[in-house]
Each structure stands twice: as structure tokens, then as C-alpha cells.
């Protein structure tokens, strides 16, 4: 996504980009796993959820963003597991926080936010805020796309 690379700050690609990526990964999913047996529902849900996240990460600019890079790396790493978000350098950040005695409430909340945003474990707080802003934008966009899909499919 060369276009997303050049976007400044927290601009986000349009909705159709997300829709395109998501539908693409859904069709991939269907190709790989035909989903014929209904007892695989949990597995299917996990797969679709992962497809949603991965397609969102791809639509949001591939590896240009920290959170999308972390998400894609994680998704490549455990292809058969649920998408979990790593907290790689958590110890460093907590040690730094403790040593400097920063505002404890904000840092604690930021610590919780680090667990939510993928790849947030190694981020500084200001960078974490920026990535969170972008992540929120992309996530809401993805939710819109998925809602649109569900609405379009459910009347059938």
C-alpha cells in the first residue's frame, strides 16, 4: 500500500480498501477451509476474526504502522492460533516508569492500553497514543465494513 505510506499522521485509507482486503481474505479462507461441517464453528469464528484483523492491518498500510506490523508478524507466526497481542518489552517500560515516578494514573492506564493495542508493549507513551489513534480509526472502519457485510448477508 504505497498510498497509505505517504499519508500523514493518522489518516486512514478509505472504507473500500478495508472491504476489499477483508473480502479477499474471506475468499481465501473459504478456499482453504470449505467450512462444510458445522461443528467447526469456533474454529471458523477464530479464522474470520483473524482474517478481519489481518486484512485490517494490510489495508492500514502493511508494515508502515507499528501496530499493523506487530499484528501481521503475530499472524504469520502462529497461523493456527488466535491473534494475540504481544507485550514484548513490558519490563523495560514498567521499570522506566517506576524509576522516574511519573504520573501513576496515566501510566497505569497507558499500561492497560499497551495490552490492547497490538505491538504496544514496546512503545513509548506518546507513540502509543499515536498508534492508538490510528488503530481506533482503522478498527472503527473495519467494524463498519463488517457490519455492512453482515447486514448485506443476513436477509438472505
Amino acid at each position: 500500500m504505497a498510498s497509505a505510506d505517504k499519508l500523514i499522521n493518522t489518516d486512514v485509507p478509505e472504507k473500500d480498501v478495508f472491504a476489499f482486503h477483508f473480502l479477499q481474505s474471506l475468499s481465501n479462507l473459504r478456499k482453504q477451509n470449505p467450512f462444510d461441517t458445522p461443528d467447526q464453528k469456533n474454529y471458523r469464528v477464530r479464522k474470520i476474526k483473524k482474517a478481519a484483523y489481518v486484512s485490517m492491518a494490510r489495508a492500514a498500510g502493511g508494515s508502515s504502522r507499528l501496530w499493523s506490523r506487530a499484528l501481521l508478524r503475530r499472524a504469520d507466526k502462529d497461523d493456527n492460533k488466535i491473534v494475540r497481542f504481544s507485550r514484548r518489552k513490558w519490563k523495560i517500560s514498567s521499570k522506566r516508569r517506576r524509576s522516574n515516578q511519573r504520573a501513576p494514573v496515566v501510566e497505569e492506564a497507558a499500561e492497560r492500553l499497551r495490552n490492547l493495542v497490538p505491538g504496544g508493549g514496546g512503545m513509548e507513551t506518546s507513540k502509543l497514543m499515536e498508534e492508538t489513534a490510528h488503530y481506533i480509526k482503522c478498527l472503527s472502519m473495519q467494524v463498519k465494513v463488517m457490519q455492512c457485510l453482515v447486514d448485506g448477508l443476513s436477509p438472505k
Binding site: 473480502l23 474470520i48 448485506g152
Partner: peptide, 24 residues
């Protein structure tokens, strides 16, 4: 939403393209 999509997924075969077209 992914749960919902998983329930409707078996009959998604042709509809994806429709939705894609509609979305686009």
C-alpha cells in the same frame, strides 16, 4: 461480527461478490 459472519459464511459463496460490488 466475525461470529455473525461465521454463521452466515456457508451461504456466502456468491454474496461476497455482491456485497463487494455494493460496498464499492
Amino acid at each position: 461480527l466475525s461470529m455473525k459472519l461465521a454463521t452466515v459464511n456457508p451461504e456466502i459463496n456468491i454474496d461476497i461478490d455482491r456485497i463487494l460490488a455494493k460496498d464499492l
